[in-house]
C-alpha cells in the first residue's frame, strides 16, 4: 500500500499545474499506483479566504472518498478562522490541518497560531507545517516568500508535545540542521517530497538512505508534492532505496496510517 501524504488540488497563479483539478489528480494518483492521498487545498495558499480552497477539497473528498484524505488550510491571522475551523473539522470531517505561516503572514510564536494549534490539540488533529511551496530560487518576482525557520519549527513542536506534527517540504540540509534537537522529541514526522539530495554530506548518495540513517524510517512519510512535482521522483526514491523492506513499508504507508488514524 502507498499513501502519498503531500499532495494538493486547486489553483496556483504562477504556473499551470496539469493535475490540479480533482479529476486529473485522481487520474495521476491511479496511474502512479497511489492508494490514498492526503490532499490540501492549493487555492488556500493565496486566496484571502481559505474556505475557497477547503470547499474544493471537500468536494473532491465527497467524490473520491476512498482515495482522498482531506486536510484543511486555516489562516489564524484572518477573521473568523474559529468558525471555519469548526466547519472543516466538525461538519466536513477533515482529517488534518496544514499551515502556511510564511504565506499567510504570521509567525510561529504569534498568539493567533498558538490558539489554532491549541484548537487542533483539543480535537487531536495532526498539524502539517509547510516549510515552503516552491523552491525560493524560482519564485515569482513580485512574491518572494522565505521558507519556515527550522529552529522555530522545533520550538513549536516542543511547545505542543501532545500535537502530532508533520514537517512538510523541508530539504535534507534543513532537517539535518535541527537533527539533534529533533532527536529528543517524539511528536513529529517529516515528508520526503522536497528532499532531492544530501548536499555534500559524506556517505551514501541516496537521500532516502541517508534520511533513514539520520532520522529513522519511523519518522518518514512518503510524499510527492504533487501536482507541483513529479510523483515518480519521490516514488522511485523510496522504491529503489537500499533499505529494509520493513523501513520501506513504514515510509510508504504504515507511518501515515498510524499518524492519521
Amino acid at each position: 500500500m502507498i499513501i502519498d501524504t503531500f499532495t494538493g488540488i486547486g489553483t496556483w497563479p504562477f504556473r499551470k499545474l496539469k493535475y490540479a483539478s480533482a479529476d486529473k489528480f485522481i487520474e495521476l494518483m491511479e496511474r502512479e499506483g497511489i492508494d490514498q492521498a492526503v490532499v490540501y487545498p492549493i487555492t488556500s495558499i493565496l486566496a484571502k479566504d481559505c474556505m475557497d480552497g477547503n470547499l474544493e477539497v471537500y468536494d473532491a473528498y465527497k467524490k473520491y472518498q476512498s482515495m482522498v484524505v482531506p486536510f484543511a488550510v486555516i489562516n489564524p491571522a484572518f477573521e473568523g478562522w474559529e468558525h471555519d475551523f469548526e466547519t472543516c473539522f466538525d461538519k466536513m470531517k477533515f482529517k488534518g490541518l496544514r499551515l502556511f505561516p510564511t504565506y499567510h503572514g504570521y509567525g510561529l510564536t504569534d498568539k493567533c497560531l498558538i490558539a489554532l494549534i491549541k484548537a487542533a490539540e483539543n480535537k487531536n488533529i495532526p498539524v502539517a507545517l509547510a516549510v515552503r511551496v516552491e523552491d525560493e530560487r524560482q519564485h515569482h518576482w513580485l512574491m518572494k516568500v522565505p521558507p519556515l525557520d527550522m529552529g522555530k519549527v522545533v520550538d513549536t513542536i516542543i511547545k505542543f508535545p501532545k500535537v502530532r506534527f508533520v514537517i512538510s517540504g523541508a530539504s535534507y540540509s534543513e532537517l539535518s540542521s535541527v537533527r539533534e534537537r529533533l532527536a529528543k522529541l517524539d511528536n513529529w514526522h517529516f515528508d520526503i517530497g522536497r528532499m532531492q539530495g544530501r548536499h555534500a554530506s559524506p556517505g551514501a548518495v541516496e537521500v532516502v538512505v541517508r534520511a533513514v540513517e539520520d532520522f529513522g524510517a519511523d519518522k518518514m512519510l512518503f510524499g510527492s508534492n504533487a501536482p507541483f512535482q513529479y510523483v515518480k521522483s519521490s516514488l522511485l526514491k523510496v522504491l529503489n532505496a537500499k533499505i529494509s523492506e520493513r523501513d520501506r513499508e513504514l515510509i510508504l504507508s504504515s507511518n501515515a496510517i498510524k499518524l492519521f488514524k
Partner: peptide
C-alpha cells in the same frame, strides 16, 4: 543527475514520470 549531491532517483523520476 548532479550526483552525488542530488539523488539519482529524483532525476530519473522526472523522465519516467513525464507525459
Amino acid at each position: 543527475t548532479d550526483l552525488p549531491d542530488i539523488d539519482f532517483w529524483t532525476n530519473l523520476g522526472k523522465v519516467e514520470g513525464a507525459d
